[in-house]
Measured scan of single mutants.
Amino acid sequence: MKVMIRKTATGHSAYVAKKDLEELIVEMENPALWGGKVTLANGWQLELPAMAADTPLPITVEARKL
């Protein structure tokens, strides 16, 4: 699914347009965010693609819901 990742004042957030859902990312498998699992505030887990740590945000990526 397409997910937009952006930086907020409190960390990172994910927006899933198909579900009209925006949630804070509360847990990251990798400190650089990319190439691992993230957990959203509502409990969803997404697998993000591997990208460079300095990838500019906001960005829309293809993520997989676990």
Rank of each mutant, 00 (worst) to 15 (best):
L66T: 10
N42L: 04
I5D: 00
T39Y: 08
P49N: 00
A9P: 13
W34R: 02
V26F: 04
T8Q: 07
L24Y: 09
W44P: 01
N30G: 06
L48G: 01
E62F: 15
A50N: 12
E22T: 11
T55F: 04
E47V: 14
L48D: 02
G11I: 02
L66C: 10
V16I: 15
N30R: 09
G35D: 06
A9F: 09
K2R: 13
L21Q: 10
V38Y: 04
Q45S: 09
L24D: 14
W34H: 02
P56N: 08
M4E: 15
E23M: 15
A14R: 02
N30Q: 10
G36C: 04
L57K: 01
V3F: 03
P49F: 07
I25Q: 00
E27P: 00
A63R: 00
E27L: 09
V38G: 00
G43A: 03
M28E: 03
P31T: 09
S13W: 15
L40E: 00
S13G: 06
V3Y: 00
R6S: 13
E62A: 10
L21S: 08
E22W: 13
Q45E: 12
A63N: 02
D20E: 11
M28D: 01
D54S: 09
K2A: 12
M1P: 02
A17Q: 13
D54Q: 07
V3S: 00
Q45P: 00
A41L: 06
L46Q: 00
G36L: 06
A14S: 01
G35P: 04
K19E: 15
L33T: 03
R6Y: 10
P56E: 12
A52I: 06
D54W: 07
K7Q: 10
P31H: 09
K19L: 15
E29I: 03
P49C: 06
A52C: 07
I5P: 01
E22P: 04
N42M: 04
E22C: 13
Y15G: 03
L21Y: 08
G35T: 03
L33Q: 02
P56A: 11
A14C: 11
M4R: 12
A53L: 10
V3L: 07
D20W: 08
I25P: 01
V61R: 01
E22S: 09
P31S: 09
A17T: 11
A9H: 10
